[in-house]
């Protein structure tokens, strides 16, 4: 028995290691590049021979990056907030109510999620230029919400379906109105789902490059992924790889913080104990 357990542990340990290495090597590579000086960039060493923080100093000295970071944070947060609020309401209705057109709504939101975004870029570009949304925050927030909503609705309705309906009935029997039942009983239980969805949506908005590069033209609303592609070195003959790597590391940090912050709220099995099981 003991040997079987040990060999199983070794096997699983090896598999885990492969997955972790596979996922982390590119990230560590970027991190490593960001600490290298320009001449040693291409030396192929995993651990930099010549450490420097110049790349980080450089990107924070340029207005370009700081401004883009502000745009990114603002746009992603606003889009996430709106998408999650709308998604929560829609998902609650979908999982709890039986209304005419319900399957149509679900179908259409699935359709949007499937829609190739590339095919929308040109029409969106023209529309936004004509109505004055081009190169504004709103011009990015709107398409982000559109594409984040199906994601939000799907994730959240799965969470709502896990909450036993009896709880809502019980709340009503205990004297709660529909609103009170939602606010005091359902919403606290749906919190992990809401946070999970918020993270997913935020990452989606944060990472987007296609809309960001197509629907912006200046620093006014350009987000970091788009701004990165405009990076140049200290002079135009210098290789900007180091600066780009540093910027890439910097923009990964908010995501990590965001996930770490909300992770504690995503406790699996928060609903355990409500019903038999």
């Amino acid at each position: 028995m003991a040997t079987a357990t040990t060999s199983a542990k070794v096997k699983w340990g090896f598999l885990d290691a492969v997955v972790v290495v596979f996922a982390l090597i590119p990230v560590l590579w970027i991190a490593s590049l960001s600490f290298k000086t320009t001449p040693t960039l291409t030396d192929g060493n995993f651990i930099p021979r010549d450490w420097t923080l110049d790349n980080y100093k450089l990107i924070f000295q340029t207005d370009q990056f700081v401004r883009a970071l502000i745009n990114s944070i603002g746009i992603a947060l606003i889009a996430t907030a709106i998408a999650v609020v709308l998604g929560t309401m829609a998902a609650y209705a979908i999982s709890r109510l039986d209304f005419p057109g319900k399957s149509l709504l679900v179908g259409v939101s699935l359709l949007i999620a499937m829609f190739p975004q590339v095919s929308l870029v040109t029409p969106l570009f023209n529309i936004e230029r004509n109505i004055g949304l081009f190169d504004t925050w709103l011009g990015l927030i709107l398409p982000y919400i559109t594409f984040a909503l199906p994601l939000a609705i799907y994730t959240l309705s799965a969470f709502f379906k896990q909450i036993p309906w009896d709880l809502e009935k019980a709340a009503k029997m205990d004297g709660a109105t529909q609103g009170e039942a939602f606010r005091k009983v359902i919403a606290p239980l749906a919190a992990p789902g809401v946070f999970t969805t918020a993270i997913l949506v935020f990452i989606f908005c944060w990472n987007d490059f296609l809309f960001a590069i197509s629907l912006t033209s200046t620093e006014r609303s350009r987000t970091v992924p788009a701004a990165l592609s405009f990076f140049t070195g200290a002079s135009q003959f210098e290789d900007p790889t180091g600066a780009i790597s540093a910027a890439a590391v910097v923009i990964t940090i908010p995501i990590i913080l965001f996930v770490l912050f909300f992770q504690r709220r995503i406790v699996a099995g928060l609903t355990s104990g409500a019903v038999k099981g």
Binding site: P164, L167, K169, A170, D174, G175, A176, P188, L189, V275
Partner: peptide, 29 residues
């Protein structure tokens, strides 16, 4: 509405509020 009928119900699944303690559960109504 159920809340205006002044009747209480015990469910097969118990339907306890998992985010509340026993005290809060009983105090809820």
């Amino acid at each position: 509405a159920p809340k205006d009928r002044d009747i209480a119900m015990v469910f097969q699944s118990y339907a306890l509020y998992p985010n509340m303690t026993v005290r809060e559960n009983m105090a809820f109504p």
